[in-house]
Amino acid sequence: MNIVEVKSLYKSYTKSKPTKYAVHNVSLGIEHGEILGLVGESGCGKSTLGALMLKLIEPTKGEIWFDGKNITNLTFRNMRKIRSHMQIVFQGSSNAFNPYHTVRQIISEPMDNYTKFSSAEKERKILACLESVGLGAEHIERYSGELSGGQRQRIGIARALILDPKFVVCDEAVSSVDYGLKKQILKILYDLKQEKGFTYLFISHDMAAINAVCDRVAVMYLGNLVEILPSTDATALHPYTKALMAATLEPDPKIKKKKLVLFNESGDFSYPHGGCPFQSRCLYASEKCRTEDQLLREISDGHFVACHLI
């Protein structure tokens, strides 16, 4: 069963008469208990899609479903009731926290707003939550500016998970941390999923992180979903996905990969009028790609691709 589902979703940031979309006709469901990876280059609409799923921003068109309920037009009051089940983890930059709040205040804020725990109970929960992300009680009085990048990242996770949400959007949650820490944080996220049955939307442009934790992978390009892989080891079919996969960095500097030319690297990459969004960079684009729109098609079980060539 899908815990979150978006249907023909559009989002434009221009006010009247949208012409450019950050999210363009996206339909995607996330199953209970899975980690869905969402990849794509910077500015392709990944974060927008994540924020839309939590209704932190309003869609221009389309529907958002959560737990079998259409939440697209819910009022603030009704939305507030289900918000405790959906949370977001940001990149652990200093912007993720109010600089004047201590770790205790940061983590207890969702509880202050949603629960009526006594302060002793809250304290106990905060400590347990800190422990589950590998931090100790000594951090509780610190301000976010006094924490390291990795600690901040873990505080962000602790804040998102304190209410035991059903669905968590991890928006570039491991992008600002180094390699060792990345592994550690991915393990925390993965263990918490196993333990508590969370569902994640894991947004990243880092293929290695995606491959490490995700069950399925959705690939976005210029606001469109171009491919959904049923598993991380499924063979990519869309030319853009192939290029992305090939761009995965090798951690061992001794292994030198030959640079592959997988798409046009110069030219006009603004959003094309009609046809496949990838047409101007695709090496294989034909006349059909420039004129006809192509939606996602199921190629094999659970594997969706939007490409005329396949």
């Binding site: 939590l54 959906m86 949370q87 977001i88 930059s93 912007n95 707003n113």
Partner: peptide, 14 residues
């Protein structure tokens, strides 16, 4: 514009 305000609604604030 900062993340902690943008996502405050996720934590139950208007």
């Amino acid at each position: 514009r900062l993340d902690y305000i943008k996502a405050a609604r996720a934590r139950g604030l208007s």
